[in-house]
Simulated scan of single mutants.
Amino acid sequence: MNQQNKPLASNQFFLSIILMVAAGHLCNDFIQSMLTATYPLLEEKFSLTFAQIGGISLVYQMTASILQPAIGFYTDKHPKPYLLPLGMVATTFGLCMLGLANQFYWLLVAAAFLGVGSSTFHPEASRVARNASAGRFGLAQSAFQVGGNLGSSLGPLLVSLVVLKYNRQSHILWFVAVGVVAIILLSRISAWSAHHLRANAHKAAQSRALPYDKRKTVCALFILSVLIFSKYFYMASMNNYFSFYLIEKFALTKESAVLFLFMFLASVAIGTFVGGPIGDRIGRKYVIWFSILGAAPFTLALPYTNLWATVVLSCVIGLVISSAFAAIIVYAQELIPGRVGLIAGLFFGLMFGMSGIAAAILGYVADKTSLQLIFKFCSYLPLLGVLTVLLPDVERYKR
């Protein structure tokens, strides 16, 4: 009897499913990251300004953010497991358009399809990870998220080796195979999820009573949103402009700059995986506190250092600042029980939205001033982590 047909229990830990959904996240974010990784090539081929680059990121991030809360809200009441492969179809189509685009507005259309694919994928995939976790929510969310971070870090590395090295936009199409593999994988995950939902349909609906009153809950969500803003506004400067910053300040080649971007993104993946299990053990609030505010000394130092110190600091920043996201997602899900899809969609959407707005604003400011100025400005954002002290201790309340 295969795993898909076995009797399922809601408290059973399905490691294979968590690993599979993490692999699906890896494939999804691998393809998504190719957009920003090819910016140096696209900037040269289409004579793009930083504002236009920011505009591409804005289209991608906004389409990735606006739909996610709505999809999460709907699927909380009406789960749709087969949205997973359908989202990957949109992502793969966007990748094809990115490899074939011959005008700037086609790049915008490609970015929009990539964003739609992402907004369709994340809420349902996050629900699958939670359903397979047996209460180890931080571990499952971290494993799911680290898959995405690994994909985001591998994208620039392979783009550097396959696309930028030969300076050929058409080489992007080689990676369509990743999308096809992901569609097959996600179809299998969707079948498991549909079976899991049927097997547990007899259970009583999960309690949706809020642990705190509405005012305190809204205040906590607002603080989490500010922390997401500080984290992803800073991350937008790194994801979109760190390679350009290295080229401008240290006269690096495109290939070398993208490899250093890969090192930063790899450290983000490691930090993401560590944050969830630690949050399960010591509490989400403490992880959030350390992750946001703890990155501040390193971000403040980065704009004033030499090349190798910049690389080392970027890796430390990636390790520290990335550990918060899984903790924030699980904390918010415990703050509003029974709304897994809505919370995942809301915070993934907020992440993408903040990243897109930040990319557009920072690109415009960089055109008017300099990249070094925006990195100095962004270095102060992690200081907003001090607001974590105002968050209620959900774990203590539950105990």
Rank of each mutant, 00 (worst) to 15 (best):
G138R: 08
W174Y: 15
Q32S: 14
I247G: 05
L265A: 05
I17R: 11
L107Q: 03
K80V: 12
A199R: 07
A23Q: 07
V21L: 10
R130H: 05
T310P: 01
P85Q: 02
R127D: 11
V21M: 10
M62V: 09
Q206T: 12
W308N: 15
M88A: 06
L42T: 11
P123F: 01
L98V: 00
Q145L: 13
L154V: 06
V386W: 05
L335V: 01
Q3T: 04
P81T: 00
F290Y: 08
L335D: 04
F250E: 14
L293P: 03
K285N: 06
A366K: 04
W192V: 03
S193A: 13
G147S: 02
S10R: 13
F50M: 15
F113R: 05
V116Q: 01
M351L: 07
V274T: 08
Y364Q: 09
V116D: 11
P303R: 11
F73Q: 14
F260N: 09
L19I: 11
L139V: 01
S133R: 07
L19N: 00
Y60N: 14
L108N: 07
L186V: 08
A129N: 09
G99W: 12
M97S: 03
Q169E: 09
A269D: 07
Q206K: 14
S237M: 12
L8P: 00
